[in-house]
Design a protein around this nucleic acid. Sequence first.
RNA 1: GGAGAAAUGGCAGAGUGGUCGAAUGCGGCAGUCUUGAAAACUGUUGAGGGUCACACCUCCGGGGGUUCGAAUCCCUCUUUCUCCGCCA
Length: 422
Amino acid sequence: MLQVPFIRENKELVIERLAKRNIDAEQSINDVITLDEDRRNLQATLDNLKAESNSISKEIGNLFKAGKAQEANALKEKTTQLKEDTKQLEQELNDKADALNALLYQLPNVPHQSVPKGNTDEDNEEVYREGDIPKLIDGALPHWELAKKYDIIDFELGNKITGAGFPVYKGKGARLQRALIAYFLDKNTEAGYTEFQLPHLVNEASGFGTGQLPDKEGQMYHVTGDNLYLIPTAEVPGTNLFRDTLLNESDLPIGITGYTPCFRREAGSYGAHVRGLNRLHQFDKVEILRVEHPERSYTALDEMVEHVKTILKELKLPYRILRLCGGDLGFTSALTYDFEVFSTAQDRWLEISSVSNFETFQANRLKLRFKNSEGKNELAHTLNGSSLALPRVLAGILENYQTEDGIKIPDVLVPYTGFDKI
RNA sequence: GGAGAAAUGGCAGAGUGGUCGAAUGCGGCAGUCUUGAAAACUGUUGAGGGUCACACCUCCGGGGGUUCGAAUCCCUCUUUCUCCGCCA
């Protein structure tokens, strides 16, 4: 959620930057400013009314104590009108605040100046590319065929137990999956992130804190019996660790990592591009999260990008990095870099990581602040990224490492798998 | 799941209708003393809004209510603890 004082002081900039998302926000921004002004005026009036009734109440108390019941009762009558006015003003104030908040919830984060204007993923800007695209063997197969051939992932079995998008990993497939999780976690802790194990179900307040709620509940599975949501990413429980938190400046930066399964309804996204592991309802992901001082959050973003690069380099997978354009940028993000691995057998790029700086957008909802050097409370910046999302990495490995006599395991993973070939 | 108890400032812990944003202790910060430190003593020390600064408003787990007035009474939700049941 954007900060009203920021909007007030940077009106033109906000409108201009939101235009990168192809949003004409002028009307909304003007409304925000007006509603906020009204709200503050109402608040001031209400405060005065309250001050008056507070002092009358005090007086009544004193009169009773002095044994002047008659005078006290006379004063009581005076408060009747006050109470009515207060009630009415409170109602008006609530209405204003609700209207203001409803507007604010609809406004996405202000994109960073480097974000290119654009509509779709075709307008994303490639900023880096590394790794040679391997020459495939004759008769190279896409990963869903390989999964069947080597009997390591069973999609039909998942269909039976749950439904489409819930694959069952078997044998070396399961072991490779576990190896990847352990490898990613080790790389992240080596880089200074603290490992966490987080809940896989979250309450409404958490969904709200990271921006899934309100409005985007369609992407999450809802457990109605207990009014909880299955997490779509570790970002939700991970970032909400810091909800309603006041940190010391010396606590920053904070870096955590965690493995969780992720559950996404992906309503309406069916078609040719969702075969195999490309898009699932349940998948595994290792996430990195940071809480940063506003002055160095973009340095931190660069560090996270570099970190993910080293992992992909070690895995020897061909990848590229995109700076997302305004139209493709997530609602809560100011700047996002997507990592994509090249899937040779499918001849397309697969998104395997998304690294974002949310600046104060989440922190404002979370009330995540730190006490700055002037002793004032200031919103911190939050960032997160995948390192990495498992299924598409797995797809990339299966397809790019296939040989005539099996699938080779990347060298760095062998200590984790215990075998070097499937 | 059943029965009972509880939730107060960084922590511990008083407070059962008015002068309580809240005693006291610990902790923190500043000072005195000391070569320095400790101890002792003195002072200070919650958060949010608002203001140039004051004033003022709000906050005693969340929400609602009673009352001129609520930390205190009532309803409700959540969480924690104890006992019983069940259980990886």
